[in-house]
């Protein structure tokens, strides 16, 4: 018997009324994500993939269709499933410790302190416990936001182009950091990106979205073990496959 899917998206559609007309953003999306799987949702900017993530996270209500997590319909945001934005989502009025401990208000002081210390170390921010976000680099702020999310021990993480604002070298470092953290903390991850390389480097499966109204064009399994060799023929073949699916010519 196969275990039930962690996340199940069924016949999801989303239409936004704008003055006079109705814009269809998502059209009958069906997707199942296994427990512990890292799925990248890949599509061009403005295709509606962030909208999809916001619906799955419980921040938006779909026009039709349903999202089930652990076989329960998603009715709103839930601390068991944390949304990670670009690094601008950290709270600038709190220190690193304050941010990591933000969601731990239900715990006692001792357990709180223990969890904060653990996750500050896990994301490599030891020594910066009392620093404020404005004193950190972009990559450090992104780690901080990931630590804040992990600290409440969610079983699903939603990442919405989390590394989009970072420089290309920091972005590479952050991807391997995410994979390292994922080995330490088994989470189901939905990762929205418009970066083809990013999706091939991270994902177990890549869901390729079409332009608006977004439908699932194709789901590509990335059958490579970690660490992935970015110059191997398989990597390049998968990347070219995704480039073709996204509809970009090879010689731009």
């Amino acid at each position: 018997m196969t275990p039930p899917p962690k996340v199940s998206i069924r016949g999801l559609s989303m239409r936004f009324p704008t003055d006079g007309s109705v814009i269809e953003v998502l059209s009958s999306i069906d997707l199942e994500v296994k427990d512990g799987e890292l799925v990248c949702i890949l599509g061009p900017s403005g295709c509606g993939k962030s909208t999809l993530l916001n619906i799955v996270g419980g921040f938006l209500k779909a026009t039709s269709g349903a999202v089930l997590i652990d076989e329960q319909e998603v009715a709103g945001p839930d601390p068991r499933r944390i949304f990670v934005f670009q690094e601008r989502g950290v709270f600038p009025w709190l220190t690193v410790e304050g941010n990591v401990g933000f969601g731990l208000f239900r715990l006692g002081a001792a357990e709180r302190a223990e969890r904060i210390a653990y996750y500050v170390k896990l994301v490599g921010l030891s020594g910066f416990e009392n620093a404020y976000p404005q004193e950190l680099s972009g990559g450090m702020k992104q780690r901080l936001e990931v630590a804040r999310a992990l600290a409440v021990n969610p079983d699903v993480l939603f990442l919405d182009e989390p590394f989009g604002a970072l420089d290309s070298i920091t972005r590479l470092v952050m991807r391997s950091e995410l994979l390292r953290i994922r080995r330490a903390e088994k989470k189901t991850i939905l990762f929205v990106t418009h970066d083809i390389d990013e999706s091939v480097q991270l994902a177990d499966r890549v869901v390729v979205m079409s332009t608006r109204p977004a439908t699932i064009r194709r789901i590509v399994e990335i059958d490579m073990s970690h660490p992935r060799d970015l110059s191997s023929p398989r990597y390049i073949a998968l990347r070219d496959l995704l480039l073709g699916e996204i509809g970009l010519a090879h010689k731009i």
């Binding site: 921040f59 945001p77 839930d78 601390p79 944390i82 709270f91 009025w93 709190l94 933000f102 969601g103």
Partner: peptide, 25 residues
């Protein structure tokens, strides 16, 4: 809006959200 969304995501009630997110922001 991102701060409010994050606050809600961590399960803050409205009074807590006001005290811990809206006011400091």
């Amino acid at each position: 809006a991102m701060y409010l969304q994050a606050g809600r995501n961590f399960g803050l009630s409205t009074p807590r959200l006001l005290a811990r997110v809206v006011f400091p922001a």
